[in-house]
Design a protein around this nucleic acid. Sequence first.
DNA 1: ATGAAAGCGCTAACAT
DNA 2: ATGTTAGCGCTTTCAT
Lengths: 347, 347
Amino acid sequence: MDAPVLPPTRRRRGASGITLGDVARLAGVSPITASRALNTPQQVAPETLARVRAAVERTGYVPNRLAGGLASARSRLVAAVVPTIAGPVFMETVESLTAALADSGYQLMLGQSGYADSREDALLEAIIGRRPDGIVLTGIMHSATGRRRLMSSGIPVVETWDLTPTPIDMLVGFSHADAGAAVADYLHARGRRRPAVLSGDDERARRRLQGFTRRLQQLGTVADAADVAVRLVPAPTTLGSGRAGLAALLDLDPAPDAVFCSSDLLALGVLTEAAARGVAVPERIAVIGFGDLAFAGDSHPSLTTVRIDGTGIGRLAARCIVERAEGRSVEGRVFDVGFSVIERASA
Amino acid sequence: MDAPVLPPTRRRRGASGITLGDVARLAGVSPITASRALNTPQQVAPETLARVRAAVERTGYVPNRLAGGLASARSRLVAAVVPTIAGPVFMETVESLTAALADSGYQLMLGQSGYADSREDALLEAIIGRRPDGIVLTGIMHSATGRRRLMSSGIPVVETWDLTPTPIDMLVGFSHADAGAAVADYLHARGRRRPAVLSGDDERARRRLQGFTRRLQQLGTVADAADVAVRLVPAPTTLGSGRAGLAALLDLDPAPDAVFCSSDLLALGVLTEAAARGVAVPERIAVIGFGDLAFAGDSHPSLTTVRIDGTGIGRLAARCIVERAEGRSVEGRVFDVGFSVIERASA
DNA sequence: ATGAAAGCGCTAACAT
DNA sequence: ATGTTAGCGCTTTCAT
């Protein structure tokens, strides 16, 4: 039998080599009609629709989104950048972001910036190269070069977990300085006069620390910022560094009567060390965490902390991107989701 | 001046509309040469290379990987599926996977399967549609339909965190039954004769549980599987369910003298509840966790647990995918990374 | 070492 | 409601 005249090797097609054209042929329509049947079914006659769907079913066709994205300039891909996945802080946000995006037919690409700026450029290149419909920045950002690059890329950007004065584009976060101040108020109202801070050494934690000490000065708890005992530990914070941190703080004279920790994990370490030493919490020392992670309500004593709605942040970030991608305009570009101090037993 | 004759609206190009063609023109070469300069520089004359690189620099060109992927049938995208991102268990694996892939020029796409099978089909469709060069399945898998679909997609698949008898393709994991048995041995050797299990209700934990009780029978610790007190808690496990779990186990008569927890978080909850009740660990009850999360060494008492090299799993999974994608063959398709019981103070 | 032609699989822009 | 045409931006194949 004569094979039809074809160029020698028809090229390796993706193993599941069924294309829209194949489906269309099987359904007896043109490719564009098949495309419409899948993407905008209301534009297609019911009977045609049924034929196309049957053809899809029979062939097991899965549309190639690379091709679709190239043709339509909409990749339906969203990139998220986190300093590290292994930190518990942003997980909630990434989780809800992933879920919310999936609901709208978008997929999440994950990038780790690390806590260093060096690989950041490579990461941006990798991300922009995929032409995502949006980029969600979580936590720390960014070299000035990186910011400029993002702006000129024209890709919608949502920065999260912070409220910076000059956002790249959109912003979903809260004021870390205000959160620190709120904790200062809380401790002051409960009569604590020798507060200390145990803090991871990252930018946002430092901002909370600043807000905290500043408010303590305003309240008259301390005369000078230097009067607040501060112990910095390297990021990421751990239970172990919390234990070591409390040990160090207890050696001070006078010993503090409260510790504001920059993370719940740190606070859990403080509780652990206090229990190990027989130091009564909150009687001898009050402990406040940050984040309200899942375990905060179940520690012993239960942990007073600052709650951030990480899930809400993720969901809102997703909405910002999706609305923009679909050409709908969002009312506003800066969203303050706030925070709340959750009173429990430890303070 | 006469504009060159062009179709009316040249179509909206991606905002940063610089293409390889633009770069090539600027460098005075053909597009394909510019392409080679970027992808296989050794094929290009040094002087040409320099001109192309200069043009890239000047224009801020970022290659469109959607187009590249479409043309080359290599997306340099890898999909990872986890039940949930918010669980601490797989974070380490996802982190090292992301990092290892990035080092080889691949990007990670994240999908959440949830603990339910319902959305799984949609997720697979979304993933396969992107034509990733590989798929990493972490934890639970999968409806028979899903497995078949993956196999017929022709995309390399790595299942992780488990050793199943009939892998879809490649496998990087360890035997949960063996891990359970090892814990049984450990407790038996230390004279514990009334061991209990506090376990999240998921498949792999159940497999460990089975290995655990079976070995206890072999050892003669119990006559019957039903003699091992088992308390199941819903996944995901929390510190709170650990506390509640111990409370329930202590009500038994006779009370257990050891608890094997299906996660470190659960074990931390047990330690917490024990401390709150003044139950001495390990004297009155020994506690063993699973996972060796970061905090395990720092709890009070420090936690005896089973260590899994999550980072190694991620790195190895990345290697499997990358080697396959680059056409190199990997020696073997099943890798047992094992586990180790870490002896600390709690047991 | 470089280039010309063709096409990856899909969708936007016009038809009709 | 459906089809035709012309690309999206890149890489493959085959020449030179």
